[in-house]
Design a protein around this nucleic acid. Structure first.
Lengths: 214, 214
DNA sequence: TAAAAAATACCAAGAAGTTGGTATTTTTTT
DNA sequence: AAAAAAATACCAACTTCTTGGTATTTTTTA
């Protein structure tokens, strides 16, 4: 038997975090070094624990989310493997994660056996994505709409305006609030629609919520 | 020591369900009879297990959600206690649950100790709502906007249209899809805006997502 | 320091949403 | 069977959003 995999867990829901801890605790192949409730805490822990092999993290967390966290960890500690857990299939986020060299992605729908085998595979240097993720992602990669969405990158200002739109602001109100002309607000709105491939305001709000921007 | 509390757990995320099971398993005060991944399964289990004391359920689940489940269980098996777990504070949903005589409401943010003590209290016939829920709910009860929202009851048709709106349908498209006149679609949209106290389409989409309708 | 990206601003036509009404028919509840 | 709620339909004025352009300035990146 090899040394146990040294793991850090991160999730903003304590109940889930404790549950996951309890599930993995009994498995001798794994050792949980610590748990964290957001990305910031994980980064702090990584300065303390030097022998971390694997990070298991949720996507939606306050302060620093799973997407950002993966990117930072991969840059600063390239030897640490990262498995991301998520509630839903979000192809656009998966594309981003893969681009940032994530090692695994599982839905919280998965059972503990799937997670254990994923940890096992990833610890050995392989990638692991659950089956339905793989299928859905492949499908979406070849639909022109999704490709556009995967690479939709909103600027800072655009995100700011997107949030105001989702909060029921009109172009005129956005202009007033941000001290810009209404024309500019309109232009931003237009560009947002194009970048996220939405048809109207409803699509903008969906995007905002599903990407955790509000 | 009394008999252990006979419990059924329900959540659509297997990983959370298994984690929760593992956490409660070691506590001799509790006994988990079964787990379910949606409301429908719970109802089936209740015809099988006659000695259920307590149901712990998530809000957002497919088929039958936690809100509906609580209502049905309380009507059919008034002796069974119900504790609802949720990701977020959703005051309008809490109002509905309280109205349907729910026994407890906890955030998934809570730790296992809080959950255990909640189970304990509820099993003894008391109610349990976590502290921040109590505070927020009280505050919201006395703001005129929230009262309106709490009692906003959309009709079946209105919910149907709300979902279409959130999916980027225009009034004309809704009319065509549902075989009604565009005027009728407009009227429904108008009534939805009034009932949920939204200002425009953005507010409708937010409502739809935050109430788990899409 | 170029080049690229982001932010700004303007215009006009047309589409879609919002507001404030009224009113009839159908369905559900009491 | 009566009352209440839901679903339907219509109209007009007004507001807001969307589309398809162009164009300059500022900031960031290579």
């Amino acid at each position: 038997m090899n040394q146990p995999v040294q793991i850090i867990l991160a999730d903003d829901h304590k109940m889930f975090l404790e549950g996951l801890y309890a599930l993995l605790y009994d498995d001798k192949r794994f050792h949980i070094l610590a748990t964290a409730k957001n990305g910031k805490e994980v980064l702090k822990l990584l300065t303390k624990y030097k022998a971390v092999d694997l990070l298991i993290t949720d996507i939606s967390m306050p302060e620093i989310d799973g997407i950002q966290l993966n990117k930072i960890v991969k840059k600063k500690y390239p030897q640490i493997k990262v498995i991301v857990l998520s509630m839903h299939k979000q192809n656009n986020l998966i594309a981003k994660l893969i681009n940032d060299d994530v090692d695994g992605y599982l839905l919280k729908n998965a059972d503990i056996d799937e997670l254990s085998s994923a940890i096992d595979k990833v610890a050995k240097g392989n990638k692991y994505f659950s089956k339905d993720i793989r299928q859905d992602f492949m499908k979406s990669m070849f639909s022109p709409k999704a490709v556009k969405q995967s690479f939709a990158k909103l600027s800072k200002r655009e995100k700011e305006i997107l949030i105001l739109i989702a909060n029921e602001y009109t172009n005129a109100e956005i202009a007033e609030k941000l001290f810009i002309s209404q024309f500019t607000a309109e232009t931003h709105r237009k560009n947002i629609l194009r970048k996220i491939d939405a048809k109207n305001t409803a699509g903008i709000v969906r995007y905002a919520i599903q990407h955790g921007l509000i």
